[in-house]
Simulated assay, not measured.
Amino acid sequence: MFKRAVSRRLAALLAASQLLLVAQVPVAQAAMIGTAEVLQAQQQQVDRQQLLSMLEDRGVQDKLASLGVERDQVEQRIQSLTNAELAQFNQQLSEAPAGGIIGIIVLFLVIFIITDLLCATDIFSFVKCINR
């Protein structure tokens, strides 16, 4: 009788632990990913790589050096661009003439200065935040 009571309690305990283990397993949900979303994600990656490869150009490096901007700061900013900013920047880049890359870099630096003024970034030490 004692064995039977222990066996029932053990069986109940094992059944309860089994139910708890099953209840903790998250339910997986699968969904189709559209071609447009995949292409958009790939395009954004290509756009970022295109901007980063522009930093290899000697003229761009000279212009950044003359403006007192370090390449690492520009790379970090490119990586932190939102998808909308990245698309807008690359559209302006594609519309610019071949020699307009320096102009685009200057535009990028103006964006840096504006974000410094708004206290969103702290890239340039000579730009003071207007919200302080």
Rank of each mutant, 00 (worst) to 15 (best):
L52I: 08
D116K: 01
L19I: 08
L81K: 01
D72L: 08
S7V: 15
I123G: 01
L19P: 00
S94D: 14
S94V: 03
A15F: 08
I104G: 04
R132N: 07
V60G: 06
S66A: 15
E75R: 09
L55M: 15
V25K: 07
Q73R: 07
D116F: 08
P97E: 13
L51C: 06
E56W: 05
V106D: 10
V106T: 10
I105F: 06
R4I: 14
L55K: 04
I33Y: 01
F124C: 00
A23I: 08
F126G: 07
D116Q: 03
I101T: 15
G100C: 06
N90S: 06
T82A: 05
L55W: 05
R8T: 09
L13C: 11
S66C: 09
V106E: 13
Q18V: 07
R48N: 12
Q92S: 13
A30K: 03
Q44F: 03
A120Y: 05
R4F: 11
L67P: 01
V69C: 06
T121L: 05
L107P: 02
S7L: 15
F108K: 00
T115R: 13
L109G: 00
A5T: 14
Q73W: 06
L51D: 00
C119G: 12
F112E: 03
K128C: 01
S80K: 10
Q49P: 01
A15W: 09
F2N: 14
F124W: 09
E70G: 14
Q88S: 09
M1L: 13
D57K: 09
A5F: 13
L55N: 01
I101F: 08
K63V: 06
L51P: 01
E70D: 15
I104K: 02
G103W: 00
V46T: 15
I33N: 04
E70A: 13
G68K: 11
I101H: 03
L117F: 09
V38T: 10
A23W: 14
I105S: 01
L67D: 02
A65M: 14
I104R: 04
A98G: 12
S66T: 14
R4L: 13
Q24K: 07
L86G: 02
I104V: 12
L21P: 00
L93G: 02
V22W: 02
A36L: 07
R132W: 00
I101P: 01
G59Q: 14
L20H: 07
I130E: 10
K128D: 05
V22I: 11
E37V: 07
D62F: 12
T115G: 01
C119R: 10
A23M: 11
I130L: 14
R4M: 08
D47S: 07
G99C: 04
A36K: 03
R132A: 06
L55Y: 03
D57Q: 11
A84M: 04
V127Y: 01
A87L: 06
I113F: 06
V27T: 15
L51H: 02
T35I: 12
A98P: 12
S66E: 14
L21G: 05
D62V: 12
Q45E: 15
D116M: 10
S125G: 11
I33T: 05
I111H: 00
L55I: 15
L81W: 05
T121W: 01
R132S: 05
R48C: 09
R132D: 08
L109M: 10
Q29E: 04
I78H: 04
G99L: 10
L109T: 09
L67H: 05
